[in-house]
Design a protein around this nucleic acid. Structure first.
Length: 505
RNA sequence: CGGGAUGUGGCGCAGUUGGUAGCGCACUUGGUUUGGGACCAAGGGGUCCCGCGUUCGAGUCGCGGUAUCCCGACCA
């Protein structure tokens, strides 16, 4: 047994004397991220190193998202990493929301230490105005848009930027909450309120679509409550996913910013009547947190399970042989089959490392979540078959080499759909309607989404959070089951609709 | 920023009353293996987080730093 590749399984975890279930799930998750070769803690506090295999997944996500953004009329641009401190303070709520987690550049030069040991910051090189490493780019972008927008003819501006941002979080976790993370942030400017709202809704829809089609992850689309809203937004939409421990994860957000930033940065345009008006704004983003969502949504006791649409390697081929002659014949056949599959756009890895035994390779590729494994040994070569194993169902079957590429191509689609159905079934079986406070306190311990009536006040929301650690994940947009009258589970006051409560990452 | 813990080969850890720095995995070489995480043999690799102190002698004891992790508050 190679201890370096064992991971704490869910089963093992649940057999332990668990006092804090959340903590143990986290441990399992972290272990999985590291062992599956996706990422590791960096030497820099709270930052992570994304390893090549993990980064390849992110690149696939980027590629699909970028295409979707362009299909919806957006263009990419790039804005500075540094934001003058004064910019951040222009929008009052915005600065309040981010002030506590900013990395600040105060000097621009180092010098040799007077004691001869290493270097120190040169006190003479102090910046007149400190620069904040962007925690998000609304301020620098709106300061720029001010120069771009004069007339109604300049609108709308539909820009996206792929970038890194820094938020000095107190506690960090790989992919879910790192001090530095990669993301995309869309920033749009519109002539009318209605158009901006439509944009914010459209983009949260793009995220939901991406989650479903590529990540095979069902999400709920909804409004954030006032307290959970983005700092500086009028309305925040989010997609909320459920992880396998029943906790919620906010996987993407889209904000209707009203005229807040336009007013803060004095961005006015001349409308068709020749009158000056402030422009309407949105911003929307998803980050490398999606990687965390992907991992926690699908992984099992044997490691990662990747949806074919995002798997860097969709098919791994493992030869089994005793002699060099056997190896040569089998690998030659595999090369042919590999080419046939690649011609259909399938990404294939032929693992012909000969110092490792097949069992080791099986386990390793399973840990890495490769959707399909194809094995050919002397027996298979003889009778013209391959052994084909599915990662999502852990099943094996014997398939003819003839027409293999076509079979695999269809199978990848099947796996993609199956993974979504499985995740959807899990999610739906962990959504419950709750109508009393006693029941709420009991059910929240089991995890999952609780559909409850809420009186709409931040005070009630805060008290529920204090007592149960549960927060309002969202006020669902399109879920008709929520549209019914009732009484707030906490205060008993009247409510027009249910909202989703859950504990969250 | 409050509470708790931990720093020992690449990784995970042991190290007793202070007395030659160890184990497993990984790595290198050779050989036998190969249909679910192989085995044998040989080998390389350490300023025991840093500093000061106690001592004939410190990985171990004391003091002071520092870093990381966990729990809170905050968050994509």
């Amino acid at each position: 047994m190679n201890n370096n590749y064992t991971i704490d399984t869910m089963a093992e975890i649940s057999n332990k004397e668990v006092t804090n279930r959340e903590e143990d799930y986290s441990k399992w998750y972290n272990n999985l991220v590291v062992k599956a070769d996706l990422a590791e803690q960096s030497a820099v506090r709270g930052c992570m190193v994304i390893k090549p295999y993990g980064y390849a997944i992110w690149e696939k996500m980027q590629h699909e998202l970028d295409r979707m953004f362009k299909e919806t009329g957006h263009q990419n641009a790039y804005f500075p990493l540094f934001i003058p401190k004064s910019f951040l303070s222009r929008e009052a709520e915005h600065v309040e929301g981010f002030a506590k987690e900013c990395a600040v550049v105060t000097h621009h030069r180092l010098m040799n230490s007077p004691d001869g040991k290493g270097v120190v910051v040169d006190p003479d090189a102090k910046l007149e105005e400190e620069l904040v490493v962007r925690p998000t780019s609304e301020t620098i972008i709106w300061n720029t848009y001010k120069n771009w927008i004069k007339s109604w003819r300049d609108l709308p501006i539909l820009c996206n930027q792929w970038a890194n941002v820094v938020r000095w979080e107190m506690r960090t976790r790989l992919f879910l909450r790192t001090a530095e993370f990669l993301w995309q942030e869309g920033h749009t400017a519109h002539a009318t309120e209605a158009e901006a709202i439509a944009e914010a809704q459209k983009m949260v829809g793009v995220y939901a679509d991406f989650a479903r089609r590529y990540m095979a992850m069902p999400v709920v689309v909804g409004h954030k409550s006032e307290t959970e809203r983005f700092a500086g937004a009028v309305d925040t939409y989010s997609i909320e996913a459920m992880m396998q421990d029943g906790k919620a994860l906010q996987a993407g957000t889209s904000h209707f910013l009203g005229q807040n930033f336009a007013k803060a940065f004095e961005v006015q345009y001349a409308n068709k009547e020749g009158k000056l008006d402030y422009v309407w704004a949105t911003s929307w983003g998803v980050s490398t947190r999606l990687m965390g969502a992907l991992i926690m949504c699908h992984s099992d006791n044997n490691g990662l399970v990747l949806p074919p649409a995002l798997a860097p390697i969709q098919v791994v081929m493992v030869p089994i042989f005793k002699t060099d002659e056997e190896k040569a014949a089998i690998v030659a056949r595999m090369e042919q089959l590999k080419k046939e599959m690649e011609a259909k756009g399938i990404s294939v890895k032929l693992d012909n490392r000969d110092h490792l035994r097949p069992g080791f390779k099986f386990a390793e590729w399973e840990l890495k979540g490769v959707p399909v494994r194809i094995v050919i040994g002397p027996r298979d070569l003889e009778n013209g078959n391959v052994e084909l194993a599915r990662r999502d169902t852990s099943t094996k079957e014997s398939v003819p080499q003839e027409g293999l590429a076509g079979y695999v191509s269809e199978l990848l689609d099947t796996i993609q759909n199956n993974m979504y159905e499985k995740a959807l079934e899990f999610r739906d079986s962990h959504v419950v309607k709750v109508d009393t406070w006693e029941e709420f306190k009991e059910k929240i311990e089991d995890g999952g989404f609780l559909l409850c009536h809420w009186d709409g006040t931040p005070e009630t929301e805060e008290k529920i959070k204090e007592e149960t650690k549960a927060t309002i994940r969202c006020i669902p947009i399109d879920s008709c089951v929520c549209e019914e009258e009732g009484k707030c589970i906490y205060s008993g006051k009247p409510s027009k609709r249910r909202v989703i409560f859950a504990r969250a990452y």
